[in-house]
Amino acid sequence: MLTLIQSVLTGGMVGGLYAIMSVGLTLTFGVVRIVNFAHGAFVMMASYLAWLAYQNWGMDPFVAAIPITALFLVIGIGFYVGFLQRLSKFDTLAQVLFTVAIAFILQGFATGQWGPDPQVVAPSYSLDVVHIGSISLPLIRIIAFAIGLAATAALWLLLTYTDFGRSVRASVADRGAAQMIGIKPSRVQAITTGIGVACAGLAGAILAPISSVSPTVYTDYTFIAFIVIILGGLGSFFGAFFGGLIIGITEALGQTYLDGGIAHALTFAMFIVIVVVRPNGLAVRRTA
């Protein structure tokens, strides 16, 4: 019984991390309707930046997350203005291919600059554990989980209650009408993409001390992110959070009671089931 609880909680922590990764994607895909397969690659690059900050200046990754997130906001806007704006008129396949190619470029760059070897970011508290009875949870993951939850909530608040959020929803719902009342859809979409990529940046920085910092992790990240957001329902932030939790817990249960490889395959099997049975995801209500 204890093993089960431990497993679920551990999985929940991991799931929280998946949620952080995915929440930005649900914004760009779910709201702005652009497929970004480079999302995981952005997470990877942010991890590398956090590693460099840690390596060269001893900066704690959670501290480094702040400038990194800001930087990625700018990068995201630039990415939209430079490429995605044009791509948004193309079909889905074009967007997939283009962003996959961008991911390749980033991977090639990371491999060439820093080698294929995973890097370790290990701040002094990274192995501290919090004990609740006989359940133990790594401190660093609790912090990451909390940040993820906060980010999800912040995004939801942003989109639901602010003027900006309203303009985003308006321009998605009816572009022409939005333009008529003075909203500039392309500007809105640029900023939204920026926020989505900024979330990827935040995720990358937080993940640096927890997961591997290596050039090849991004493929897993991207795929998991897509699974999570489809599971949770496109455009739903809390859905993405839930989706992440479910995936994380499934993986942890798989590893605890079955073999490691099965856990991974289970995630994919679950995806197929969801997409076939309930394609709108588990969160029935959308935020917009």
Binding site: S7, T10, G11, M13, T216, T256
Partner: peptide
């Protein structure tokens, strides 16, 4: 067994 690169091996270690 585990998939190489799994970031959280604590279920297995447990």
């Amino acid at each position: 067994s585990f998939k190489a690169g799994t970031s959280d091996l604590s279920p297995l270690v447990t």
